[in-house]
Design a protein around this nucleic acid. Structure first.
Lengths: 124, 124
DNA sequence: GGGGAAGTTTACGTTAACGTAAAGTGGCTC
DNA sequence: GAGCCACTTTACGTTAACGTAAACTTCCCC
């Protein structure tokens, strides 16, 4: 027997509303099974949701996350498409590198800011 | 004599529209000098703009960037406020750490995706 | 002095990512 | 069988971050 989740369980676990989860489905990022009307989420669905939320924390749009999700499964046997996929993966990688660099710059700027603030405090 | 920039120069350098730069001013993130009606940007203004755009690449809202800008200058001699500032700096630092972790996870996921894609390619 | 180019203000329009409200369904439990 | 809880659909509302258009000024050039 395999574990499943209700929409409410996932909403609570990741601190989002059920509206948000349904919206992601509407946008084609999730497609859970149904038992009657009710949505049943698999561990894979849960992983996908986690991926979306990770993307959000990095400022990705839902379109970008959808792209990321598609990267995560081959879903093609066409040479052209597979090679295009490799390019998109490389692009994403480059974007992540830029973000890493941005974070490092901001971190040292925070270092400076903290130092100056402590200076101002001891100067009182 | 100190270097200055026109709004068009900054727009070209950072690949944004002048509308965007004026919007940031409207939101209180920039406040350039004026010569008559015309805006004159200092190197400090330019640095601020760079900070905003760096924030954007990391998914910060303009409100967050405004906060970041305020962190970058003491702008207070009040003990309470300075200590509050230290907390906000620590918070930002924690957020950046989370983003770092998220990036690392995504990087290894891209590694996997690339490996699987190459597999699929050689399997043709 | 007519025409561009670059600047300005004002104002309405647009898109993404949900929030919020209304009205209904299915299952449980007392 | 009344009430409650978690789920559902439908649909209109909202906010952030600009885009876009109109009408104007300033300066330079020929």
């Amino acid at each position: 027997m395999t574990t499943t989740y209700s929409i409410g369980e996932l909403a609570r676990e990741f601190d989002v509303t059920t509206r948000t989860i349904r919206f992601y489905e509407d946008q084609g990022l999730l497609s859970p099974r149904r038992r009657g009307q009710t949505r049943i989420y698999s561990p894979a669905d849960r992983t996908t949701l986690k991926l979306i939320l990770r993307g959000k924390r990095l400022g990705f749009s839902l379109a970008e996350s959808r792209d990321l999700i598609r990267m995560y499964r081959p879903a093609s046997d066409n040479r052209q498409q597979l090679e295009a996929l490799l390019e998109r993966i490389a692009d994403k990688r480059a974007q992540l590198e830029r973000q890493l660099a941005d974070i490092h710059v901001l971190q040292t700027e925070l270092d400076d800011a903290e130092a100056r603030t402590r200076q101002a405090l001891t100067a009182l």
